[in-house]
Amino acid sequence: MAQVPATPKMRRFSLLTAARLFGPDLLLKNSDLQASERAALTLRSLKSPRAPENPTSIFLIPLVGPHHVGDWQAVCLRLTATLRSFIAQTDPNWRVLICGQTSPDLPDDARITFVPFTEEIEGNDKWAKLRQLCETLPTLGIAQGYAMTFDADDLAHPALVEEMHTRRAAGGYLMSQGYVFDVGNNRIALAAPASAAQPLRKPFWKLCGSCAALAFDFSSDPNAETARIRESTQHEHRMFPYLAKLAGRPLSPLSGPKALYMLNHGENFGARRGRVSFKQRFAERFEVTDPETLARIRQDFALD
């Protein structure tokens, strides 16, 4: 199962404009919509978004299989660090679902669940695992909250869940700011929207898949809610803001860097596809050099 191609930018603009001017029902009559667009428009036609009450954040982690990596133990160690960043959350109302062929040793925490993956797929099976994770969501008995895909080698800031639950954004959240950690070169950079001083800088959500938390409400129309999350995850992460707007649930930026993306550590899938080098150049260009800031980052994300 391959990643679904992104909708061209001009078509995204035209569909968003048409949805705003004419409503979703007319657009749903089109036969050339992507499954993600159809799911987004269907949800938009059913109900208006509302802030979740007593939310639980659910993090969806597709875990690479041992047959796809050169050092399975290193993969397990990085996953443990990721899970520890959730255990360190100041708000305890979270769950983690991990989908993979082989379950590593997991921390003894009832909020962490392993979902076995048994499909035989040649090549990158990440998208099939994400689909299975999304279809598991409504079985957890959690009515409202946020669903966020998260890579097994990224780290969450300890205040991530607390901010999402305190603000209770009706549509969800987008990581416009975050840190990029080039492990091989021990270099940390800040990803954030471009500015006059940094015109070539990029927001975090354009660099890392651990970037969007989608609000859900399974108390009504759970099938539509599940389909919207499931089909959104089948695309590259740059599609998340567009699909959220198409669903009538725009994403709110978080207040600051609430995730850290680790690259150049030896087992990135992007490296095997030749896609990490530009991110290493990004980390070099936008490196954080202030000693106090670096010390705070390393403490917040338990890098030492």
Rank of each mutant, 00 (worst) to 15 (best):
L63R: 02
L63H: 09
L63S: 03
V64K: 15
V64T: 14
V64A: 12
G65T: 09
G65M: 11
G65F: 07
G65D: 14
P66A: 02
H67G: 01
H67E: 13
H67R: 15
H68F: 07
H68D: 12
H68G: 01
V69G: 04
V69R: 13
V69D: 04
G70N: 12
G70V: 00
G70R: 06
D71N: 15
W72S: 13
W72N: 13
Q73N: 14
Q73V: 13
Q73Y: 02
Q73M: 08
A74D: 11
A74K: 08
V75L: 14
V75M: 14
C76F: 10
C76T: 14
L77G: 15
L77K: 12
R78C: 08
L79H: 03
T80M: 04
T80A: 05
A81C: 10
L83T: 01
L83E: 03
L83N: 02
R84S: 10
R84I: 02
S85A: 02
F86N: 11
F86V: 03
F86Y: 13
I87G: 06
I87K: 12
A88Q: 08
Q89W: 00
Q89E: 03
T90F: 04
T90W: 00
T90A: 14
D91L: 00
D91A: 15
D91V: 09
D91C: 10
D91W: 00
N93I: 00
N93R: 08
N93W: 00
W94V: 05
W94N: 06
R95Y: 06
R95I: 11
R95W: 02
R95T: 12
R95L: 14
R95A: 12
V96F: 05
L97M: 07
L97I: 08
I98W: 09
C99V: 07
C99T: 04
C99E: 03
G100S: 06
Q101M: 05
Q101H: 12
Q101E: 15
T102E: 15
T102C: 07
T102L: 11
P104C: 09
D105H: 09
L106Y: 11
L106M: 07
D108S: 13
D108R: 07
D109K: 05
D109G: 11
D109L: 04
A110G: 03
A110V: 05
A110D: 12
R111H: 10
R111Y: 08
I112P: 09
I112D: 09
I112Q: 06
I112C: 06
T113F: 01
T113A: 13
T113K: 06
F114L: 08
F114V: 10
F117Y: 15
F117G: 01
F117D: 01
